[in-house]
Design a protein around this nucleic acid. Sequence first.
DNA 1: CGCTTCGTTCAGAAATTTGTGAAGTTAAGG
DNA 2: CCTTAACTTCACAAATTTCTGAACGAAGCG
Lengths: 162, 162
Amino acid sequence: MTDKARDAEAVSRFVERFAAQLVEAGMTRMPARVFAALLSSDSGAMTSAELGEQLQVSPAAVSGAVRYLSQQHMVSREREPGSRRERYRVHSDQWYEALTNRDAILKRWSDSLREGVTSLGAETPAGRRLAETVAFFDFIQDELTAMMERWREHRERTFGQP
Amino acid sequence: MTDKARDAEAVSRFVERFAAQLVEAGMTRMPARVFAALLSSDSGAMTSAELGEQLQVSPAAVSGAVRYLSQQHMVSREREPGSRRERYRVHSDQWYEALTNRDAILKRWSDSLREGVTSLGAETPAGRRLAETVAFFDFIQDELTAMMERWREHRERTFGQP
DNA sequence: CGCTTCGTTCAGAAATTTGTGAAGTTAAGG
DNA sequence: CCTTAACTTCACAAATTTCTGAACGAAGCG
């Protein structure tokens, strides 16, 4: 068994294992696998063909997964200049990005809950519970922002330049 | 249309709307609907029969949803003493609980990633990326704990006793 | 103790989701 | 321009998930 083969096997084992964890946490399978594969590639970027081969799936499946992932800001696409190949990349601070984008979801929850407070009546017990929930989400939102800022600092201190 | 009927309609509208948001964020439909229903009830607790009626689903569906929700620590079960009815309850700090339990997931991710660092080699570029990801999650974990503590304080100041 | 009322579990039907193959689109290279 | 390579899109097949109805189990009440 060559070094290269050994690596491929180790990589694959990690990819599938980690992807399974992501799935368990609510992510769909193919995007999870693609993301894990990118995360464990040395360059941090792979072409559609490479992904298809590693994961043993069709180009169509890769395409779908990648579309989903870029909507979620979990990968970015790059065109290799002067080639029809496209590369999909994870940045090392990709989780940071992804988490930041959860803000949008929290915002919508807040809005929806606020409507609930109005329509159920701010004076009713249910209204009060919803109001408290709104307060929680607003609090979390502010805290998340601050937390991400601290991470950026922490990261620079620990790993060098941004 | 009586006051009660009007309320029921307004409640239902909110429940379905908010549940839809939860679904959009990855939650399964029935648990989302049950949770939203509990959240917008005045007492914060409902019986299986009440949930079934409000949501127009079978007892079996309620049972399944509730099982899921209590595994996720998003509702608690109460036995009404001297009755075969069971009540399912959301606490006002239920989100706090739920988020705290996400820690377990983060922990498993960290562990899985650490394995990845070892098996891919800490000196490889991929290994370094994974190591940075581990650092991120560990950071988040600590921050979450602190954040939840701050929320408890904030909540007491704003809404009165714990 | 049996009756009755809730709740749970389980097998299966229905609906949704997921991935494939094939056709379509865009853009590089001769 | 025409060819070819790469990705995307679409219709469909397969697998999975989700909810129901029915049978079962436990616990109060007469």
